[in-house]
Design a binder for these strands. Structure first.
Ligand code: SF4
Ligand code: SF4
Lengths: 137, 137
DNA sequence: AATTAATACCACCTTAAGATAGTATTAAAT
DNA sequence: ATTTAATACTATCTTAAGGTGGTATTAATT
């Protein structure tokens, strides 16, 4: 019932980056200290986010990362999908992926409503719509 | 965003047991074959469920397990709590446990509604209210 | 050209969940 | 009493997520 650690970090970093001015460059060292996330682990995550075109990497001495789009154009579902491409199936409590009215798991009838709500929320919530306080836990 | 394997198995077994006559005894061998769950792993789970008083264990030659209460008196939240005592905090996407209006995570405002729905569902859904078909995936 | 500060890559370590194996205990049936 | 079929216990194996370490590459500064 929780997003995994990697995705949580990704959301926190992108939230942090979307709080500043557009086009601001952030380096991982500073981000890792500010958000209290392991530097090495964070570089790994940033590289993945970069390849997924959510952020842009600039190498070299005054390099860093910046958002690739406006915060309003990055939804939670986009971030999660990078690390968990099967997010839609994974929102299911019993994790049976393929299901129709004839083949449904024990909890389908009770779960389908909250599931739809969550999916909608993840699709509609973008980086500029979320609370930027308390980004380090 | 998914219940862990152990909890999923527990729900499936208890669902299966609640489909039959009251007081029916089930042995783990048969259950494991019927539901296609590893026998050894299932005995472990059953022992835990027994200690949590959701089922009653009867040792010896004609032993087995039976439900300790009526299906209508066992809610999903009761099953989940056995293996995940912090379920209430674990329903949070970013997994920050202790939070109030002043200290809330980035997703609190968006999440609080679905969270409440899920919690309500887990509390109100009992074993006799769920679909007993397709218990083996 | 050399230095420096950044990202990128590759291989490994650590931990916890998931699963298995072997043995002990219990109690009905014979 | 012995056998047998069940649960109970303890220790270990496996796998994937989480996390580290070391080095290569890039490009501005000097
Ligand atoms: S049957 Fe319904 S609740 Fe179950 S896994 Fe499929 S979509 Fe999800
Ligand atoms: S702040 Fe809200 S959403 Fe975040 S962990 Fe706490 S209760 Fe859950």
């Amino acid at each position: 019932m929780q997003l995994n650690n990697t995705v949580q970090y990704a959301i926190r970093v992108l939230s942090y980056m979307s709080a500043g001015e557009e086009e601001t460059l952030y380096n991982v060292k500073a981000l890792s200290e500010e958000l209290e996330i392991s530097y090495k682990f964070l570089t790994k995550i940033m590289t993945v986010l970069s390849k997924a075109d959510l952020i842009v990497s600039i190498r070299g001495r005054v390099g860093g990362f910046k958002l690739a789009k406006k915060p309003s154009q990055i939804a939670l579902i986009d971030i999660i999908s990078v690390f968990d491409p099967n997010i839609k199936e994974d929102i299911c409590l019993l994790g049976l992926g393929e299901c129709d009215s004839a083949h449904k798991c024990a909890l389908h009838d009770q779960w389908i409503k909250p599931k739809a709500d969550i999916q909608k929320m993840l699709e509609e919530t973008t980086l500029d719509g979320i609370d930027k306080n308390n980004l380090k836990f």
